[in-house]
Design a binder for these strands. Structure first.
Lengths: 339, 339
DNA sequence: TTGTATGCGTTATCAG
DNA sequence: CTGATAACGCATACAA
């Protein structure tokens, strides 16, 4: 590492004062071109890089955008993170994550930790903060973006979609394809999952096809294996179920495999629809219908909105609904004729 | 946020000097119990939280453990991250990530970014750093752990396994199960992938079963869909291929679906083996054989080794080989009799 | 065991 | 356009 090079050393070499170097680096147009040239040369020669801690201490703020997400292993969130990276690329900002493990109390704690660092911005997943967390966010002295979901009463900015409506559209799709006894498979029943269920229920009910007993849920985390178990349990109770709307793609994939094991034809005897549209869905056999949720764009846009605000540009509308699109595939082609 | 609470305010309330508060927080046993009690009370009452920037500036180091990984979307790495979190839980340390996108130059850059924050520790994936990056790591004034892989000449500490040997074991498994015309499917041919291929080749060759044309690879990223394409291409050239060792689980899953589409029986006419043993593998139909790679443990152990060093405890052996275990499942049960 | 003086590297403020 | 001074919040070294 050698020694660390400071502003003072650069200044000495360039024959100016430290503050001038500081200015030359942050607002080049405020120092004379000649001075700037000397400074730039000194910076390059010495390999100077600013100390983020000193800067944070002096300015009272950092270049860190704090991100609070429920899980780092869930592919849904990793896609959002990729978008985030894209959004802050080539900027001075850094991203720092906090994993809430779907626990509101943890989210509250992490929020405190982040806030203490005077983040440049804050991105939080969802709209289900605790009252305390909500208060913290409301008072945050930085741009805040809620992602993954839209809803009333945003803290500041918001970019997401309606889980209720997305699920409703998927359910309409199932019904449009001719399924008449649709069921619901859900794991880790967090608030977003519940809203999806509500969307499913609303549409099924409206069509007179809702059977409250035709859903199988668990509080345990989601997985492919779990999808199989849930389908098996549901079919044990209601063998005539002719379609399942799955809370996410892992469950749908598990349901597909379980159907294979049980010798149940998909989509003829059972339609399967997932949620999120992970890459594997279209590669499956049969390809699985799912709901596309623009996760990458969500992350990228959230980051860009924060940057725009920070850089004094127009961040555009404070509430962006990215929607969700049913990707219809063979797994919901419709019940077999004569079924 | 109200105003920020400082050490001085806590000190005033507790009736001591700031430095005493500082000590009480970092080394509680060096202040008298009574004083400490007063301080603790003041801290709680005021909701004091140390300012990480000020601390970093004063001490010349931070509590950030920098982590460099190739990808944030790959399930393989997200599992490692989960382990990392587990490893630093309840400690003062934080984790900060850098994503290299499998690009050595990016890794070098990020290393510089991290290093100037004086990280408490550094965790890097793999052993294929550029010479420049290697130099930076060698000179780093903090513990360094290379993860995901073991190899000669560690920078400092190392926890991983041999990709060559793991692939070799998987290949031996295929041969032991009676497959005689094994092929290889690989995507994004990074150094670790190549070493796996080498392991496959070594064993196949030793058994007199290696056909250099019986492998299908691409530089593009891995995905389930890609696995299908690769299998199709391989079978087009060599329809008699009776087993495939896939570079990772996504490819294996894609190969399975493609086999279904082609009407090829698994495992009877084609054995399929993946790598990493993601959860979906055992839930598939047929369940897919894969190689378990203890990713969570890798992350957890790396973090613990760093903590041990930082806290003056014994970090144990500097080089830990976590091994890898073939999880034999139905997808490699062996060729059908009479095949 | 506790306190005093000082410095970490940078930037805000105000002068020149 | 450039510079001197002070301050950010905390921890080290030393003294009491």
């Amino acid at each position: 590492m050698g020694r660390r090079v400071t502003l003072a050393e650069v200044a000495a070499r360039a024959g100016v004062s430290p503050i001038t170097v500081s200015r030359a680096l942050r607002r080049p147009d405020t120092v004379q071109p000649e001075t700037r040239a000397r400074i730039d040369a000194a910076v390059a020669a010495l390999g100077y890089v600013p100390d983020p801690a000193a800067r944070a201490l002096a300015t009272g703020r950092s270049d860190v955008i704090g991100v609070l997400i429920p899980s780092a292993t869930n592919a849904v969130f990793t896609d959002v993170l990729s978008g985030l990276y894209e959004g802050i690329a080539e900027s001075r900002f850094d991203v720092q994550y906090g994993i809430t493990r779907y626990d509101p109390a943890t989210e509250e704690n992490l929020l405190g930790v982040f806030l203490r660092q005077r983040p440049a911005g804050l991105i939080v997943a969802g709209i289900d903060q605790t009252p305390a967390a909500r208060r913290l966010l409301d008072r945050a002295a930085c741009p805040v973006v809620q992602i993954m979901e839209t809803g009333p009463d945003p803290v500041d900015m918001m970019v997401g979609f309606s889980h209720h409506d997305a699920a409703a559209e998927a359910t309409r799709h199932l019904i449009a394809r001719g399924y008449r006894r649709p069921g619901f498979l859900g794991a880790r029943m967090d608030p977003r999952t519940r809203r999806r269920f509500a969307g499913f229920r609303a549409v099924a009910e409206a069509a007179g096809l809702y059977d409250p007993d035709r859903s199988e849920t668990t509080e345990t985390p989601s997985s492919v294996g779990r999808g199989g178990e849930l389908l098996r349990a549901l079919l044990a109770r209601h063998p005539d179920t002719d379609a399942v709307f799955c809370n996410n793609d892992d469950l749908a994939m598990g349901a597909l495999f379980e159907a294979m094991r049980l010798g149940i034809a998909v989509p003829g005897r059972l339609g399967i629809c997932g949620f999120n549209d992970l890459e594997m869905m279209r590669a499956a056999e049969p390809p699985l219908t799912s709901v596309r949720t623009n996760r990458f764009e969500m992350g990228a846009l959230a980051a860009k909105m924060i940057r725009a605000r920070l850089e004094g540009r127009d961040p555009g509308p404070a509430l962006v609904d990215l929607g969700a699109q049913v990707q219809a595939r063979a797994s919901t082609a419709g019940p077999a004729a004569g079924d």
